[in-house]
Amino acid sequence: MILKYYYIFFLLLWVLGSCSPRNLTYLSNLEEDGATSETITNDVDPKIQPNDLLNITITSLSAESNVLFNKGVIQTSSSSGGAEASLKSTGYLVDKNGDIVLPVLGKVNLAGLTKEQAANKLTLELGRYARDPIINISYLNFKVTVIGEVNNPSTFTVPSERINVFEALGLAGDMTPYGKRDNVLLIREQGGERMTMRINLNDKNVLHSPYFYLQQNDIVYVEPDKVKAVQVSPGRSNVQYGLSIGLALLSVVTLLITQVF
């Protein structure tokens, strides 16, 4: 009988040890009643980086200048390869030094500038060659990647050039139940540096985080919780398998002793 109670005790410990409470609610500490209104202070315009592909349109009072400085209209294609080739032929690629090459002007460094700042800089530069130029800049390859414990991991192109972490998760089909909402990893390359930071999506303060809004080429990695890690980790799975075998053997021994006595 004593062994039988030991068996039940160890079985309960094993079950309780394999289950841990998890908070699956985003912004779980946000007040449920009433509405709130706060000024947005963390929406920062993305800055131009090496390998960005920019669409730059230049209009002025001179038709000759318009033809000279513009690369034409982007042509679409039914095949992905054709579309990519078309984009590259019409966009301005920012090189590793942060420069683009414009007709007449030659190399112009735009690294670290927002679109508005870059447009102002080009307006001053082109003012020597075109009458009252108007510059419009947009990204052709603004994208973010969401991987890990989400239903549709992928790289997503963002036409609006503005996206927050919740919108990115929405594009990826949201997290699976195994995703760690309180410890999401963000990987960002900026100014020649690669940075990593953690985001707690259970906490309402994430709405004010400087990392709430994503930048181009950001990677969002949703880590699996301990339950999923046990399922896929060979080492931990072996431990769990060994415990199961041990408990099964203990059960058999308990039954045999009970029948004997």
Rank of each mutant, 00 (worst) to 15 (best):
Y7I: 01
R162C: 01
G246Y: 08
V44H: 12
Y241N: 10
S237M: 06
T39Q: 14
N205A: 12
T57V: 10
S138E: 02
V104N: 06
K115W: 11
Q49K: 07
M195N: 13
N66K: 05
V184W: 04
Q75V: 08
V230I: 11
Q215S: 12
L87G: 01
I8Q: 12
Q190I: 07
M1I: 11
L185H: 07
L102C: 03
G34V: 13
L105K: 08
S62G: 15
L27T: 06
T157P: 02
V144W: 01
L27M: 08
D225E: 10
L126D: 00
K180R: 15
Q117P: 09
L30Y: 10
V73G: 09
N205H: 05
E149G: 00
L102S: 04
H208Y: 15
K88G: 08
P234D: 00
E38A: 13
T258Q: 14
N97D: 12
N136V: 12
Q190M: 14
T196I: 08
L186H: 01
P21A: 09
S89R: 10
S209E: 06
T39F: 15
I245M: 14
N42S: 02
S251A: 14
A111K: 13
V220H: 04
M175A: 12
I74D: 07
L171D: 15
G191Q: 04
A63E: 15
N70W: 08
D218W: 03
L243T: 04
T76P: 14
G179I: 05
G98R: 02
V232K: 05
D99P: 11
L61R: 15
E161D: 11
N29W: 05
P21E: 15
L171N: 09
E38M: 12
Y26D: 06
I163L: 04
V227T: 14
N29T: 04
V15D: 00
Q231N: 10
K180I: 15
L255G: 03
I58G: 06
L255E: 07
A111W: 10
S138C: 03
V165E: 00
V144P: 01
V253H: 12
I187A: 10
Y5V: 12
T57M: 13
N183Q: 05
Y221A: 14
V227L: 05
E32H: 15
L30E: 08
L256Y: 13
I187F: 01
E223F: 11
I245S: 07
V15P: 01
K107W: 14
L110Q: 02
I219G: 07
T176S: 13
E38N: 12
L126T: 04
Q216V: 13
P103Q: 02
P224H: 06
T59W: 11
S251G: 12
G17C: 11
I245Y: 13
L249P: 09
T25G: 13
D45P: 14
I187E: 05
S237Y: 00
E161I: 08
L140F: 12
T76M: 11
I56P: 09
V260W: 07
N202R: 13
L16E: 07
